[in-house]
């Protein structure tokens, strides 16, 4: 059985949302920085047990923090990936705020928090204690790199599992 699920990418500007989607869906990473406007959707199937979760990924292009996202973006979402740039601790605050905002608009859906750019070890600026309170049953925290692919499959798979668990 195949089930479609709307998944929203949320996170501050340039944390790597688009790169993560590209890595996950197409298996590519492009260092060039592209900002565009609007929303782009992508699709990827993930097998969970004997089910297939068809993730329809909504990614806001070039969203900047001063411009509030429209609530319609979250409507009907079954899950959400919160992306943090591990080299910029302030993006963690943004992610936390976006989580509250997301829950307000889509209800209590599963979240997975991605601490992205883990390949940039020299610049890494997040301590474990910074994340106390984030890694909870409702919100797993995973280190990822869109560049090397580390953790990316895991993150999406975990979200897929959580979303199907919600159905059962």
């Amino acid at each position: 059985m195949t089930k479609q699920k709307k998944v929203c990418m949320l996170g501050a500007f340039a944390v790597g949302k688009t790169s993560l989607v590209a890595r996950f869906v197409k298996g590519i990473f492009d260092e060039r920085y592209l900002t565009t406007v609007g929303v782009k959707t992508d699709r990827k199937d993930v097998a969970v047990g004997d089910e297939t979760v068809r993730m329809v990924l909504w990614d806001i292009q070039g969203e900047d923090e001063l411009q509030p996202i429209k609530p319609s973006y979250m409507t009907g979402a079954s899950g959400c990936l919160l992306v943090v740039d591990g080299t910029r601790p302030e993006t963690l605050d943004v992610a936390r705020r976006l989580k509250i905002w997301g829950e307000a608009n889509a209800g209590p859906i599963p979240f997975v928090m991605l601490l992205n750019k883990v390949d940039l070890t020299a610049d890494w600026a997040l301590q474990d204690e910074d994340l106390q309170g984030d890694n909870r049953p409702g919100c797993r925290v995973i280190q990822t790199s869109a560049k090397t692919g580390e953790g990316v499959e895991d993150a999406f798979r975990i979200l897929a599992e959580k979303m199907t668990a919600g159905d059962a």
């Binding site: 609007g38 929303v39 992508d42 068809r54 329809v56 909504w58 429209k70």
Partner: peptide, 19 residues
Amino acid sequence: EEPEVISGMLTAITDFVRD
């Protein structure tokens, strides 16, 4: 090939227009 993507994009576009 990917009607789900078109469906999502279409919704995003019409949402955008409406918003």
